[in-house]
Amino acid sequence: MTEQPGRLAAYWERQLDKMEEAEQKRARKLPGWRTRKHRRTLVVVLVLADLALVTGATRFETDPKWVFPAFWLSGLVVGGFAFITLRILTGRMSGSFSRLLDEREREWRHRVTYIGYQALSYLMLIAMFYGLFGAGTAGRGAMMLSALLVTGTTIPAIVLGWSLPDDDPEDFEEGMENA
């Protein structure tokens, strides 16, 4: 009974170490893209993909039938690419456990998740009113709810991607001569 928490804690520590290693590798991926300009470009792509999902949701079960899947498929593929790339470029702040973050990163995490939470609340209200008064069918209301839910979950990455400054190459220098 007394060993179990110790084993669990040791297992958890090992997992955190592995995650830390993975994060350190991820921090060096796509070095040419680690600028505010590139991150903001991806943010714009992601916002457009979110808009495609929302637009597609309004066309659910309407003619022509190809419009909804075209908007959703393109939104999911393009948005998925932009979201994953942004997660890589915004570092551990967007994806890691809080245990792996230091004080500056926790401040950023708190800020963007708070904004994301607030935005998601408003988006869910919009989805509710759309479902009640604008959708016409239950299916369209459900698709709008899904689209706005996906949009809401991307907001922390959008805020981080837009706000973070360029990465400084000196942060990643390993050696230094003592002049």
Binding site: R92, D102, R104, E170, D171, G175, M176, N178
Partner: peptide, 24 residues
Amino acid sequence: RAERGMTRAALADAVEVNPQTIGA
């Protein structure tokens, strides 16, 4: 740091933060 020939990464490691935080 320069006086001691320390990189940001080395200082970050010593104080257990990420190097970007030293840069910030």
